[in-house]
């Protein structure tokens, strides 16, 4: 893995003494898409604001591209693009005017700004509405305009806060595609979301936030193994006799649970779909359905917290 571009160590934020982010540590490598996931109020946005130097760090430290956002905020902000949660633009200005303002704030000269702006608006599919006032834009268009701003800036890191919230499914798919394209442009992407499954598909690694802590971190597969203990659930629906015993005999199956007439759930430690199908065929029965439950972030997350709660109850 290449050099980390964001490194947080024991990053802490307290508002009036109340900790909101409680000493999180993580690092993001060059070129990866890193997801900060968790429910609202878990401390994701606060963590992001600390990385940008937009709010003070109470404790610990963070380095972005080797710069300290507390001491060198301009260096950080010059290289990092930020798309805030529910991004806003000046409604009385057009898309182009909004971007031009940002271009001037960055310090681009007029011609460079126009060229980059046209390219950026093309890239996010807003070239037809360049001269329309932003007041008429939908939520999805605003988000895309926000990404155009990051492109205009030639940011090395894009920090996207809840980029897909409030978008319809089609707009979400389009936006996720744009985010994937950012990765192809060698932009490191850090995104936060409370919609676990939507972003699961784009993230290389994720950190799950809960109440100001990172409780889990890694690739989705790693987390699945970690939390679900490498357990797969295989649901089988089949007609035949003595099937349950045959399932139990398959190597790797740790338990068989009858869900109803002709329906079973097999607990396994690996993918045994073909063996299960063979078992049904061998008994001369009919196989009606065979489905392997792939671990999603949602199940990992809920399972993890159920486990936590139970552990808490035992301790109490």
């Amino acid at each position: 893995m290449s050099e980390p571009v964001i490194e947080a160590q024991n990053l802490t934020k307290r508002y009036d003494g109340v900790p909101v982010v409680k000493g999180v540590s993580f690092s993001v490598a060059q070129g990866e898409i890193f997801g900060l996931l968790g429910p609202n109020g878990a401390g994701k946005t606060t963590t992001i604001l600390m990385m940008l130097g937009l709010t003070e760090v109470s404790d610990g430290q963070v380095k972005v591209l080797g710069y300290d956002p507390v001491r060198e905020p301009l260096q950080v902000k010059r290289r990092v693009g930020y798309l805030p949660d529910a991004v806003g633009f000046y409604d009385n200005l057009t898309a182009a005017e909004n971007l031009r303002y940002i271009g001037r704030l960055i310090g681009l000269d007029a011609r460079e700004c126009e060229e980059k702006m046209t390219a950026a608006l093309d890239h996010v599919g807003l070239h037809d509405v360049t001269d329309r006032r932003v007041a008429t834009f939908s939520r999805g268009m605003r988000q895309r305009l926000g990404i155009a701003e990051i492109l205009l800036k030639d940011a090395q890191i894009a920090i996207l806060d809840e980029p897909t919230s409030g978008l319809d499914p089609q707009a979400t798919i389009e936006l996720l595609e744009i985010i994937r394209n950012l990765k192809q442009r060698k932009v490191t992407v850090l995104l936060s979301s409370h919609l676990l499954d939507r972003v699961q598909s784009v993230c290389d690694r994720v950190a799950l936030f809960s109440q100001g802590n990172i409780v889990l971190m890694g690739t989705v597969d790693e987390l699945g193994r970690q939390v679900l203990g490498g357990n797969f659930n295989l649901d089988v629906e089949a007609e035949g006799s003595g099937l349950e015993a045959r399932f139990k005999a398959i190597p790797g199956v740790t338990g068989v649970e009858a869900l109803g007439p002709n329906r079973w759930r097999l607990k396994t430690d690996r993918d045994v779909r073909s063996e299960a199908a063979g078992a049904v065929m061998g008994s001369g029965g009919r196989l009606l359905r065979l489905s392997l439950e792939v671990p999603t972030l949602e199940t990992i997350y809920t399972r993890y917290f159920r486990g936590e709660q139970e552990a808490g109850r035992h301790a109490a």
Partner: peptide, 11 residues
């Protein structure tokens, strides 16, 4: 207008 954080994230 929710523009503040966007503008302040510029250098």
């Amino acid at each position: 207008q929710r523009t503040l954080s966007r503008v302040l994230s510029q250098p």
